[in-house]
Write a protein that binds this DNA or RNA. Structure first.
Length: 240
DNA sequence: GGGTGGCAAACAAGCAGCGT
DNA sequence: ACGCTGCTTGTTTGCCACCC
């Protein structure tokens, strides 16, 4: 069970800073968390009794858990750990379904209609949502999440709609912030350069991705150029 | 069946914070 | 104050699902 909780709290999922492998195992061994919904029942006082947890780390973890209540549907879908559903497939699902509830009774045939989703992934997803035990857990976590995007998806045309970006080198903002910026403006941040990459976003000391991008003829842009792309295409850019 | 592209794991470096 | 432990961030790469 700890593997599931670690995955749920991980970067691509609910992104709860301070809840890594060791701390999940610690909390699990102390009986403080048994399933991932228990994370939201944790109190600062529970943490202060644990080894290597003093005021600062307990407070930071509680803040991180609170922040995760405002997560997106895509991150949540990744976090619950459906077989074959990584960050990318989770984003595809979030784009195609308005809410978590809509997925509860989804049919395999409906999933296969989604471009880039094959039979294996579709089977895996429909099997997951067919299991009443899973639905019960999801309903209880859903009550803990307070992001309105869970209920409705905005459909307006976004400035980076349909564009794929790969990031390399050091950036003025953290990679995660930039990925979120691309995402929230309709683009997709991928991890590897390929012929389907539209732009390589290169910072200082770019890695091997720059060489690959040049070899494939992928256009390289800076962080400022990315901001300009967003600004020039919309008067109201989404800054996260 | 082969090529493409994304996922996920492994790894390294740097950082934060606890305990002594 | 400093050492140690664990976490975050970023990169690389092998594997595998998907598409043609």
């Amino acid at each position: 069970m700890t593997e599931k909780i670690i995955h749920f709290a991980s970067r691509g999922g609910m992104d709860i800073e301070g809840l890594g492998e060791k701390n999940v195992e610690l909390l699990y061994s102390k009986g403080l968390i048994k399933h991932f919904e228990d994370i939201y029942k944790l109190k600062k006082e529970d943490l202060l009794d644990l080894p290597r947890f003093a005021e600062k780390s307990a407070q930071n973890l509680i803040y991180a858990i609170e922040r995760s209540r405002h997560t997106t549907l895509a991150k949540f879908l990744f976090g619950i750990g459906i077989l074959h559903v990584g960050e990318y497939a989770a984003k595809l699902l979030a784009k195609n379904f308005k809410s978590l509830e809509e997925l509860f009774h989804v049919k395999k045939e409906r999933l296969i209609e989604i471009r880039q989703m094959g039979e294996k992934i579709a089977t895996s997803i429909s099997t997951f949502f067919d299991d009443e035990k899973n639905l019960k857990i999801l309903r209880s976590i859903d009550l803990e999440i307070s992001n309105p995007d869970f209920l409705s998806v905005k459909k307006e045309k976004l400035p980076l709609e349909g564009l794929t970006f790969v990031i390399t080198g050091s950036m003025p903002k953290s990679r995660k912030e930039i990925e979120d910026l691309i995402d929230s403006n309709g683009g997709h941040a991928s991890s590897a350069v390929s012929s389907s990459t539209d732009y390589l976003l290169a910072g200082e000391d770019p890695g091997s991705k720059l060489r690959k991008a040049k070899a494939l003829g992928v256009k390289t842009i800076s962080y400022d150029e990315l901001l300009n792309m967003i600004k020039t295409k919309t008067e109201h850019p989404r800054l996260f």
